[in-house]
Every structure is written in C-alpha cells, then in structure tokens.
C-alpha cells in the first residue's frame, strides 16, 4: 500500500509540474499578445503598426477639449511620447485629466488617433474625499 501511495504521489507531482511548465512556456511566448493595450512609446517603437489597436496611457493635464456635443479631443501620454486622440461618444464616469485610459481605434496618417471606444482604468487606491492623499502616487498607474 505504501508503494501504491508513493506511486500516486509521484504521478501527481510529475503531471502538475509538466502542465505548469507547458503553460508557463505558452504564456511566455504569448506575452506580447496578452496585454490589452500598448503605450504610446511602445507604439512608436513598433515596426509594423496594425490597422486597429488599443492604446493605454494617461490623459494629459489641460489637454481635454469638447469640440462639439459629445465630440472630444485630448492628449494621451506616458510621459515620454504623446498622441492626440479624437473621440465621439459618451465617456466613462472615471474619465478625467490625469486618469489612466485605454482607447481603441486607428492611428491616422497625420499621427493623431481616432478612437471608437474609451475605457477608464482605475487604480488600486481608495479614500474618502476629505482625506489628503497619503499614498504617494495616486492617479498615476505604474506603467
């Protein structure tokens, strides 16, 4: 019986470690495709820019303008590169300057970006409105 148990134990150990290894290799080779967005700097470094893509970064301070109705324009930045984004539609509740957002759309020939969807990214900080920010880095998501 002792031998049988050891055999079962060993089999489980081999099975899980092989599966873990296989999955680890799979995720490692897919790592570039598993992220939901690229940053403006990553986009500039791309040799081949896809037709439509998701771009993530912060809405630059004092860059938000309402053009006409729900037509808006803002600058997306990662503090190294920045891209002007045009969007027509309703913005999520967390959208504001300094906030992390993910925009989906297409890069235009003139270097601006026309978005068909804007998602606001929330950070992991929570506090009531009257408390000062003691977290050091609030609205900036670590890129």
């Amino acid at each position: 019986m002792g031998k049988l148990r050891r055999h079962r134990l060993l089999m489980l150990a081999w099975l899980t470690s092989f599966l873990g290894l296989a999955l680890g290799m799979l995720l490692y080779s897919l790592r570039d495709n598993l992220s939901v967005y690229v940053t403006p700097s990553e986009l500039k470094a791309l040799k081949h820019v896809p037709k439509s893509l998701d771009l993530g970064g912060l809405v630059a301070q004092n860059s938000f303008f309402r053009l006409h109705g729900v037509q808006v324009r803002f600058v997306l930045t990662d503090f190294q590169q920045q891209i002007t984004v045009f969007y027509t539609g309703i913005l999520p509740a967390l959208f504001r300057e300094g906030q992390g957002v993910i925009v989906s759309g297409a890069l235009q020939n003139n270097g601006s970006f026309i978005a068909t969807r804007v998602l606001a990214k929330h950070d992991e900080n929570y506090r009531p409105p009257h408390l000062p920010n003691t977290n050091g880095k609030s609205n900036k998501e670590s890129q």
């Binding site: 995720l27 790592r31 598993l34 992220s35 939901v36 967005y37 690229v38 940053t39 993530g56 993910i102 998602l119 990214k121 929330h122 950070d123 992991e124 900080n125 929570y126 977290n135 050091g136 880095k137 670590s142």
Partner: peptide
Amino acid sequence: WWHTLHQKSTLLGLHTPT
C-alpha cells in the same frame, strides 16, 4: 504580468495601505 484593465491588488499590493 500584463497590462490589464483590472486594477492591481489593493490589499496584497506593494504600497500598503492604499
């Protein structure tokens, strides 16, 4: 590991407490 829309962990994060 990846850029996700979901925020990082508040309770088990590196900068506690957030």
